[in-house]
């Protein structure tokens, strides 16, 4: 199903928030469709949290509007209807701080009652959501004894406790170890499969690129890119292809030159040198190309034809995103990079 056929359930129009003379968010526009995961990427202080706080009405926008779907219609979010409109949204804003002397059972029970979850089902629901993040054994322990990662997990489940349709999560994976990050990624995908919509912010490119249907990049309060992962990769026009050889050559430079000669005609880039480099940390060669699948296939064919002994040939998605992210954030618009505005306007779908 193409993305643009899905119904819009949150629409942010020209959102602007100022703190004195500092503009934290400026004319921010974003449409969130039902059932998709949208990742909001940006450096520290870019305006991610401020945007989410405005949706949660923790901050009132100075300009702009927030429209949220309710009973089949998009309704303008105001102070009067916020309780109704935000009722089916679960929020996790900033690093969660809990009351230290309370236990997850007491806190989640309170939140569930506030959100109108059926009282009889609350104990079971609490056990379910805590099991999701592996905190079952900590259900009656005081939050003050929790690690930062455990508090973060509790923050995520506190947004989930009332089984909302929409989840708005600000840096949900911050402070989590790799295993926990993987588990939360899987959890988000499962929630998506249940029809839930997730809008999450992060500075962890890999986490976002792995699960998001569309990615929005924000910098200095402005949306500078918003599209599908695939289209952003295409827009980057400068993707790193990782090539791992069976054995590391003795003369790396010689092999690099050899690879470059093979690959150069098929990169789709205007560059005529420095296409291939060696990554000493990963002990792999990296080749730049335009991200087109046809070019990628041709490069592989040529390398195989020349009997290069390859054991791994891949394009890590996060790398592509990272390149684009850095280009956009740094404001470097080389001739190889598409204009950021074009990335926002282009709603090319999958």
């Amino acid at each position: 199903m193409p993305q643009n056929n899905k119904e819009i359930i949150i629409n942010l129009k020209n959102l602007t928030k100022r703190f004195g003379s500092f503009t934290a968010v400026s004319n921010f526009n974003l449409e969130i469709r039902k059932g998709e995961i949208i990742g909001l990427l940006g450096p520290n202080g870019a305006g991610k949290t401020t945007t989410m706080k405005m949706i949660a009405r923790l901050l009132n926008p100075d300009e702009g509007e927030i429209w949220i779907k309710d009973n089949g219609n998009l309704e303008l979010l105001t102070g009067k209807n916020m309780v109704t409109l935000l009722d089916h949204i679960g929020f996790l804003i900033e690093n969660p701080t809990f009351y230290e002397h309370m236990t997850p059972r007491k806190i989640l029970s309170y939140f569930a009652i506030l959100k109108g979850y059926p009282k009889k089902k609350i104990p079971k629901r609490i056990e379910e959501v805590l099991a999701l993040v592996g905190l079952t054994d900590w259900i009656d322990k005081k939050v003050g004894t929790f690690s930062k990662g455990m508090k973060q997990k509790l923050g995520v489940v506190s947004a989930l406790i009332h089984d909302p349709d929409i989840l708005i999560l600000d840096e949900p994976q911050t402070g989590l170890d790799p295993k926990a990050r993987r588990e939360t990624r899987e959890m988000f995908l499962k929630l998506k499969n249940q029809g839930k919509t997730i809008f999450l912010s992060s500075h962890l490119l890999y986490e976002v690129s792995e699960i998001s249907d569309r990615i929005a990049i924000i910098n200095q309060g402005k949306l500078i890119a918003f599209d599908t992962m695939k289209n952003l990769e295409m827009a980057s026009k400068d993707i790193k292809l990782q090539i791992q050889l069976m054995e590391l050559p003795v003369d790396i430079e010689k092999k690099r030159v050899e690879l470059e000669e093979i690959i150069l005609p098929y990169t789709g880039l205007k560059l005529k040198s420095k296409i291939v480099s060696f990554n000493p940390e990963l002990k792999i060669f990296e080749a730049r190309f335009n991200g087109e699948l046809t070019n990628q296939r041709k490069i592989l064919e040529e390398l195989t034809k020349k009997e290069i002994d390859i054991v791994n040939f891949s394009v890590p998605r996060a790398n592509a995103l990272e390149d684009l992210y850095i280009q956009l954030i740094a404001g470097v618009a080389t001739e190889e990079v598409a204009e950021p505005q074009a990335i926002i306007k282009g709603d090319r779908g999958d």
């Binding site: 009405r57 923790l58 916020m82 309780v83 929020f91 809990f98």
Partner: peptide
């Protein structure tokens, strides 16, 4: 002060 309000709102007015 401790940002506990981030968890409470907008669950309740």
């Amino acid at each position: 002060d401790k940002h506990t309000g981030n968890l409470i709102f907008p669950k309740i007015t």
